[in-house]
Design a protein around this nucleic acid. Structure first.
Length: 439
RNA sequence: GACCCAGUAGCUCAGUUGGUUAGAGCGCGAGAUUGUGGCUCUCGAGGUCGCGGGUUCGACCCCCGUCUGGGUCCCCA
């Protein structure tokens, strides 16, 4: 007698029983199909990476949540918290041999070591689409179009009449332009972003004192708060931003172009410009955006993305413009389930073959072989249980549409009894065994 | 990381001022119906009461610790 093992999965990670895996497979298929229709090619990297790939100067939140450890050779490794650094590494490794622009997508499993709550695990799958080597905000518009197509195909409203989602969009260069005039540039700007991102949790006083330590005075702090408060839909939003930061602000110019490129994709009405959107990752340099459930029922973002033109440079490579987004499986499945938008997903069994006793197993296997050659999904019920049980199970557990009964009578007469399942009043009928490959 | 709540059968839960052998519904199995499901009836299997320690003559119940889950703060791969 050995000791009973712990039946629970590791804290914060999930088991996927077949009924869960069906949902996951359905979601991944839709993700892949949308990415394919935009001409993106799938890639992947290993879930294990060198920890140093994620250590960044600006003190990103993500670094503190790294699922890191030392291997037997004392290498510092980490389970990837996101795919983007791996993508950057792979792009760098290819060097100039990679024809640009490139459009790639992936569905990596990612990890973080953090508190567990609803919609928030230590592991998830994240659909990523990235454009490599395109400096134009046309890239962002295309990425948003792909997200919107997915959301619509999943059953969420994306039309002006019924919009279940909203894209909250900003551009880091808006604030950068404002702060540059006040002499805040380079690393100081990045550090400023990190402080600003914390404003809600630490409060305006603490934010001001943190900024003061960076040598940013009250006037500049006041200006930052003023800028962060600006938001609005479409052209109105742009006008509001223009009124606060001036029409020549480079970030504003890009947001204007983005709207111009996004509107032909039918996205204009979904975009809400909101300068309080910062995103937690320090490598973003331009457009940043988050997709939300507009009903507000789910407080967490469905997806987020941005432009990160400087990432490869900070990893020691040649400057390469890149933009991309990520969408996790946990939140979107929660939303779709809540809105009853998940399709009914059953076992995909066509036929159950039922040998009534051990004597009929050989002929049952022949029939199964014949049906499988036709491309049908066939399960042979070897339980030898009574008819009642087998019929019930074939219908409810296997979800089969046809039951092939093989008992003593059938073998003696040379005809299988075929019973249609799931149809009211459908009668069973005999089929010669010879025509089922068991003659 | 901080605080609050919870953990009893496969699932959803009841239970006790601390007292013999811990219950229900659903599900599962058998039979009524020795070859025809979805309804009904009968019977049955299934539990170290999350785990460890303590208090007590005696703990599912009280105390401490711990694990896991839910929630809030926080933050969102």
């Amino acid at each position: 007698m050995t000791e009973q093992i712990d039946l629970q999965p590791v804290k914060g990670v999930r088991d996927f029983y077949p009924e869960d895996q069906r949902v996951k497979t359905w979601l991944f298929s839709l993700w892949r199909d949308v990415a394919r229709r935009f001409g993106y090619e799938e890639f992947d990297a290993c879930v294990l990476e060198h920890e140093e790939l994620y250590v960044r100067k600006a003190g990103d939140e993500i670094t503190g949540q790294l699922y890191g450890f030392a291997d037997k050779s004392d290498r510092r490794l980490a389970l990837r918290p996101e795919l983007t650094p791996s993508l950057a590494r792979m792009v760098m490794a290819r060097g100039s041999a990679l024809p640009l622009p490139a459009r790639w997508f992936a569905i990596p499993q990612c990890f973080r070591y953090e508190n567990v709550q609803r919609g928030r695990k230590r592991e998830h799958y994240q659909w990523n689409m990235d454009v490599i080597g395109l400096a134009s905000v046309a890239a962002e518009a295309e990425l948003m179009a792909a997200q919107a197509l997915f959301l619509r195909e999943a059953g969420l409203g994306t039309s002006p009449e019924k919009a279940d989602v909203v894209f909250r969009v900003s551009n880091r260069q808006v604030l950068q332009g404002v702060l540059a005039r006040l002499g805040i540039t380079g690393d100081r700007f990045a550090q400023t972003c990190v402080i600003i991102d914390k404003r809600d949790k630490i409060g305006p006083e603490a934010m001001a004192s943190e900024l003061f330590k960076l040598g940013i005075g009250d006037d500049a702090t006041k200006r930052i708060s003023e800028v962060m408060a600006v938001s609005g839909h479409g052209a109105e939003g742009l006008a509001a931003i223009s009124a606060v930061v001036g029409k020549d602000n480079p970030g504003l110019v890009q947001l204007g172009e983005l709207l111009e490129y996004a509107e032909p994709f039918g996205l204009g009405h979904l975009l809400r410009f909101d300068l309080s959107v910062i995103r937690g990752l320090s490598y973003y340099t331009g457009t940043v955006w988050e997709v939300f459930d507009s009903s507000g029922a789910m407080p967490r973002a469905i997806a987020g993305g941005g432009r990160y033109d400087a990432l490869i440079e900070t990893l020691g490579g040649k400057p390469t413009p890149m933009a991309g987004f990520g969408m996790g499986d946990v939140v979107i499945i929660d939303i779709l389930r809540e809105k009853s938008l998940l399709p009914p997903l059953r076992r995909q069994v066509d036929d159950v073959v039922y040998p009534m006793s051990a004597k009929e197993i050989p002929v049952a296997n022949k029939v199964a072989r014949f049906l499988r050659k036709q491309g049908r999904v066939v399960v042979v019920d070897y339980s030898l249980r009574r008819f009642k049980h087998v019929v019930e199970r074939a219908e409810t557990v296997e979800g089969a549409s046809m039951l092939y009964v093989l008992g003593g009578n059938e073998v003696a007469s040379g005809k299988a009894t075929v019973k249609p399942l799931g149809q009211e009043g459908a009668k069973e009928y005999p089929v010669p065994l010879a025509s089922l490959g068991a003659g």
